[in-house]
Design a protein around this nucleic acid. Structure first.
Lengths: 293, 293
DNA sequence: CTGAAAGCGCTTACAG
DNA sequence: CTGAAAGCGCTTACAG
């Protein structure tokens, strides 16, 4: 075979060829894992891949790969309170692959989380849960929403803003509450003069962010900054600010929160607090018991 | 064991328990696939999970699961023209799991695509490529960007807009070109009176969409609608439209294109053309030879 | 129709 | 240190 890829350096090509040749006798992992009792695979189980933060997925995949693990990705529906038979089958089916560990990454609105937590706990393989808060009886890695809210708010305060409001998520959800706590904590820490009542609740969606911002500006004309608890609501808030003829960041400062990598493309570019996803993925793969339930 | 999950119906609980019990003797897929020569796994290989359209990932996972396959997800770096040894190893390592099929989903800006296409072609397992256009010597499923552009533009024309411009992506990329072709096709089909030169190029990012929209509005004051070739640029364009005191959709109509599920949350809600992701995922899993290279 | 045996491709403990 | 043998947990073809 000749190197017919001019874009590939000869050195790399030779190395690659050597690997391929060496693996020409195609090892069979099934046979290997049959005797070693290890599969060198990890399973990422999540509840909705289309909405689950991509960065977490990417970080888990990256770290698994770095450690030499292959990654299964499997979705199970947790939105209904009754787990489906199909999902249970799907899970056990996956486990029959002798996966070496499970990374359990449910969304927050999980109704049947108790069921799945228990099921996963009964397995005799390592399980790590990536969550927004404390998880009972299961090792978990918590995305630190409180710290995020604290950092976001601190960022605004340090830029000199004096009246920092918040647009929260639905306050029956842990991440929304935690982000709000972080906001409050920052206000307390940096000055007692900050008003603590500049709060409007949203529902994570952009339109609610817009409505919330309008309300904040009406109820508290003195407001000069806002921490939007996620980027979508920040987007809506930006619209509201524009609609009222105010400028960013001269008149109103705004900080968003995580989730989408696209936030960097917002205009005006949105300062957004991001989680330490890579660290999170690394811990999940290592199965480190970061915090206990 | 008692059903201590009040949220789970007794019937479901019993069914689940039966499955668990039946699987109590824990089948071992490694042993099975050793003799059957099948692993009942599929591998999704992509170039950057954090930027790769989530819906495609979700659709592939969903359809794989429906067909009883487990899904490996593996990222390889294709952005550099020289494939890394690590990536080649990673790929062959994965194949040693005897995967039953590979779904090869590179991003458009792949520099070493030729290398990887060839490598994958040499394998004696089914490979399907999900791509933006034609792929040589490999079965592929093409996202129909041209049709998308056609539909988007038609949508605007049918709403009565008379001067439909376009903000394109980088025109050296196939998807950008195809979307533009679709736009042109629609203009031709629906009326010769449409101006064909209302074109400004962007770079997929929001700021370029904003700049492009400003330029369109300056160069062609008669413009009353625009097809933004992706949602990020549409976002930027919306900003520009607002900044000039124009209203959407009264003064200017706008349609975006695909990619993010978040586009529905834009404000004003962005009409956005989406791909038929589920169909795409299904075809990829079926290994259907939708089109040939 | 039932059940014991052979064998998939590896790893590992053990004999030489 | 080297090499043949045993065995991982299944499926399948074959003997009874």
């Amino acid at each position: 075979v000749i190197n017919n890829h001019p874009d590939v350096s000869l050195k790399t090509y030779r190395q690659v060829k050597e690997v391929v040749d060496r693996l020409g006798f195609q090892p069979n992992t099934a046979a290997r894992s049959l005797v070693t009792k290890r599969s060198y695979t990890l399973a990422l189980i999540t509840s909705d891949i289309a909405h689950y933060p991509q960065q977490i997925l990417a970080a888990v995949e990256y770290n698994a790969r770095q450690k030499g693990y292959k990654l299964f990705v499997n979705v199970i529906d947790t939105s209904s309170s009754t787990p489906s038979l199909q999902d249970v089958k799907s899970l056990f089916d996956l486990l029959s692959y002798q996966v070496d560990g499970v990374i359990w990454a449910p969304e927050d609105d999980v109704k049947s989380s108790g069921f799945w937590n228990d099921k996963l706990r009964e397995l005799n393989i390592p399980v790590v849960c990536i969550s927004a808060g404390k998880v009972d009886y299961l090792p978990f890695i918590a995305v630190d929403n409180r710290l995020g809210g604290f950092i976001a708010t601190t960022h605004l305060i340090e830029q000199g803003y004096k009246q920092v409001g918040i647009i929260t998520g639905p306050l029956d959800l842990v991440p929304a509450l935690e982000r709000k706590s972080g906001w409050q904590e920052a206000l307390n820490k940096f000055g007692e003069m900050f008003q603590q009542n500049l709060i409007v609740q949203g529902d994570w969606m952009a339109p609610s962010g817009e409505a919330a911002m309008h309300k904040l500006l009406e109820d508290f004309p003195q407001i000069d900054a806002v921490f939007a608890s996620n980027d979508q609501m920040a987007l809506g808030a930006i619209q509201a600010i524009f609609q009222r003829g105010k400028r960013i960041p001269e008149d109103i400062g705004i900080v968003g929160f995580d989730d989408s990598p696209s936030s960097a493309y917002f205009h005006p570019p949105l300062t957004s607090i991001s989680h330490h996803f890579n660290e999170l993925g690394m811990k999940a793969v290592q199965g480190n018991r970061h915090k206990y339930g």
